[in-house]
Design a protein around this nucleic acid. Structure first.
Lengths: 359, 359
DNA sequence: CTGAAAGCGCTTACAG
DNA sequence: CTGAAAGCGCTTACAG
C-alpha cells in the first residue's frame, strides 16, 4: 500500500479536486481553475493538458464550492403549491427547461400552509439562490422584505399583488372576465355564475371584476359568486350548490380550467345536464387537458411558457442591475373557442392553432 | 459615514455571517457555529446570547458553505420527464413534501432527450447532491457508474431495470397485467389489445407480459400490441389505428392512465363508441384524474406516495451505509373498479376508499 | 464550555 | 501566461 493510499482513512474515495488534477497535469491549482473558467487567461496548450488530465481522473468541478466563491449559485428557488393543477405542472416544466438553457436549475419548494411557505423561503435564501420565483404561493411581507435586503430578486407568476420590490407577471385577467362575459352574453345566456378561486387571490378578483362589470353593463346584475378555492374537490362542492337550486345558472365562468373540469363533471354526471346545451362552462388557463375531448373546454388562455419566459427576463434584468425597481408585466391571452359553451353567431377568428373569439 | 461603512464598497450589503454575529455577541465565530449546531457543546446562556444577536442582525446560516464543510448538502436531485403525466406530477409533489420533513429539498432536472439526461446528471453530481432519484428517466450506464464511484446513491422510481448498484422501487407490474386480464376475461370480452409505453420501458414490458400470459392461458392468443410512448398524442394515434379496423378490440389495457384517457377520448368522440358497453378501457396508476367522472377509469393502482416513501427509505439506508448493495422494492397495488370497463359478476371487495377486485 | 486554526473546493486580484 | 495567497462562510478536531 502506497503512502498516499494509507493516508486515505475513508473507504469511500473522495471525488477528485482541482489539486488532484494539478498534480497530474504538473501545474498549479489556480491554473486548473482557469482552464475551467471560460475566458480566463490560460495558454491553449496548458488548457489542453489540464483538460486531458481532468478527464483521465474523472474530475468534475464542485459547483457548491464555486458558488461559495463566486456568490452565484445558478440555482433558482421555485415556491409552488397546487402541483395537481396541470397549469402549475406546466409552469414547473417550462421554468426548468428554460432555465436549463443557461445552465441554471430549480430548487423546489412545494408549499401548502402559509407557515411552511415562510419557512421554505427562508431556507431558499439560506441556499443562496440567485432568485426566487413564486407561483400560486404567497409569502409574508416580512419575508419578501428579507429577500430584498439579501438582494435576491423575487418574481411572482400569476398574481397581480402590488408589493414594493416584488416583480410579477400575470395574464390578462380583467380582459379575460370581460371577453368571457361578452361571449356568453352574445350567445344569449340568462343566469350567470362565477366560480372564484380563493378569496384572497388577486387574479381571481380581477377576472371576477371584468366578468361582473361587463355583465352589469348589459343589465345582468345578479351574478352568483362561489369560491372553489382552486381545488377540484371544493369546485365540485360549490358546483353542486350552484346547480341544485331552482333557478340554476346556464353559464358558469370558472377562475381556472381545473375547477371548470370539476364543474363539468358534476353537471354532466350528477345532474344529467348537457354541456353546452343546458349549461355553458368556460375556464381560464388553456391547460393541455382543455383540448382533450373529454372536456373540450372553451377557455381564456394564459400561456405558461410565455409567463415563464417573461419571468426569466425579469430575473436576468434584476440580477444585472440590483438597484432596479420591480418590473411588472402582463402577458396576452385569447378566448379559445371549443365545445363547452354555446357560441355566438359572429366574431370568430382562426388563429394558427385555435379558433379564437373577438367581439 | 463611519469607517466600517466606508470600507463597504458594494451598494448591496452583504448578508451577515457568523463572524458578524460573533462580533455583536462578543464571542468567537466558532461559538456561533456551535450555537446553530444541534447537540453541540455550548452553554445555554451563551447560546441564548448568540441567538439573540443573530436575530437582531437578521443572520441566516449559509447552507452552501455548510454543505461544503460537512460534505452533505441536504439536496436530492430529481431527474424526471413526462411532467405532463399527472402521475409524475404527483411523484414530484410527494417527494418534495416527504423530503421537506427532514429538511431536504429537490434540485430538479427535467429531461427529454437522453443526451441532456446525461448532462443533467453530471450537473447534479457537481452540485454534490446527497442522492439522485430518477423517475421516467434513463441515464447511460457510464453515468450511473460515475454516481456510484462518487458515492451518490441512485434510486429509480417506476422501473424494473436491473443495473448493478442502482436501487429501484416499482409497482406490481406483472400482477397488474394478470389481474386486468383476469378481470376483462371474467367479464367476457372477445378482442384484446394492449397500449404499451415506450419499447424500452421495463414496466410496460412486465405489464404486457402479465396481460398476454394470462390471456394466452385462457385461449386468447392474439392480443394486439401498439406503442403509445406514454404520451397523450401518440396514444390517441394508436387508439385510432386500433379502432378503425374491422374487427376492433372490445377491451383495451393501457400501460398508464394518462394514455387510457387518450384512448377513451378517441373512442367516444371520434368513433362514437360507448365506454364501457362497446369498449372497456383499463389503465395503470390510479392518478387523481381517474376518479373524475369524465373518465371514471378502472385502473390498477400504483400509489405515488408509497413509491416515494420507499425511495426515501432506500436513500437513507444507502447514505447511512455506503457500502451497502442496491435495494430493490416492490410496492403493492389494487385493481380499482370504476366505470370504464364492464364488470364481472363476482369478485368485488370493498376497500376503505375504493371498490377493488380480486378473482 | 470556549477559542484559534485548519480545512471543505473553489475564484480572483496580485506579482512576476 | 502562471503561481502563491487570500478569501467565500461554514465545521470540527484540538488545546486549554
Amino acid at each position: 500500500m502506497s503512502k498516499k493510499e494509507g493516508a486515505n482513512k475513508n473507504i469511500k474515495s473522495r471525488a477528485p479536486t482541482e489539486s488532484d488534477v494539478a498534480k497530474v497535469a504538473g501545474v498549479s491549482q489556480s491554473a486548473v481553475s482557469r482552464a475551467f473558467t471560460p475566458g480566463a487567461s490560460v495558454a491553449q496548450s496548458t488548457r489542453e493538458k489540464i483538460l486531458h488530465a481532468a478527464r483521465s481522473i474523472g474530475y468534475q468541478p464542485n459547483l457548491l464550492a464555486r458558488s461559495l466563491a463566486t456568490r452565484r449559485s445558478n440555482i433558482i428557488a421555485l415556491a409552488i403549491s397546487n402541483l395537481e393543477n396541470p397549469f402549475y405542472a406546466q409552469v414547473v416544466k417550462e421554468l426548468s427547461e428554460q432555465l436549463a438553457e443557461t445552465g441554471r436549475h430549480i430548487l423546489l419548494f412545494t408549499t401548502n400552509a402559509e407557515e411552511d411557505e415562510n419557512q421554505a423561503l427562508e431556507q431558499a435564501l439560506s441556499y443562496q439562490v440567485d432568485a426566487l420565483v413564486m407561483a400560486a404561493s404567497k409569502a409574508s411581507i416580512e419575508l419578501t422584505m428579507q429577500c430584498q435586503k439579501a438582494g435576491v430578486p423575487i418574481v411572482q407568476i400569476n398574481r397581480e399583488t402590488r408589493l414594493p420590490g416584488i416583480s410579477t407577471v400575470w395574464g390578462e385577467n380583467q380582459r379575460a372576465g370581460e371577453l368571457v362575459a361578452a361571449f356568453l352574453h352574445a350567445s344569449k345566456h340568462e343566469e350567470y355564475a362565477f366560480v372564484a378561486g380563493t378569496k384572497d387571490s388577486t387574479i381571481s378578483q380581477m377576472r371576477q371584476k371584468g366578468f361582473i362589470e361587463y355583465l352589469s353593463s348589459v343589465g345582468k346584475k345578479d351574478v352568483k359568486i362561489v369560491y372553489g378555492d382552486y381545488t377540484f374537490e371544493t369546485a365540485a362542492i360549490v358546483a353542486r350548490q350552484l346547480l341544485e337550486v331552482e333557478k340554476r345558472p346556464d353559464a358558469i365562468f370558472c377562475a381556472s380550467d381545473y375547477m371548470a373540469f370539476a364543474v363539468i363533471d358534476v353537471a354532466t354526471r350528477e345532474f344529467g345536464l348537457d354541456v353546452p346545451n343546458d349549461l355553458s362552462v368556460i375556464g381560464v388557463d388553456n391547460v393541455p387537458e382543455s383540448a382533450h375531448s373529454a372536456y373540450d373546454l372553451t377557455t381564456f388562455s394564459q400561456p405558461a411558457g410565455s409567463l415563464v419566459q417573461e419571468a426569466i427576463i425579469i430575473i436576468d434584468k434584476m440580477i444585472a442591475d440590483p438597484g432596479r425597481r420591480a418590473i411588472r408585466c402582463e402577458v396576452a391571452g385569447d378566448l379559445i373557442v371549443r365545445g363547452s359553451a354555446k357560441r355566438p353567431k359572429t366574431g370568430f377568428v382562426n388563429n394558427v392553432t385555435n379558433k379564437i373569439w373577438l367581439p
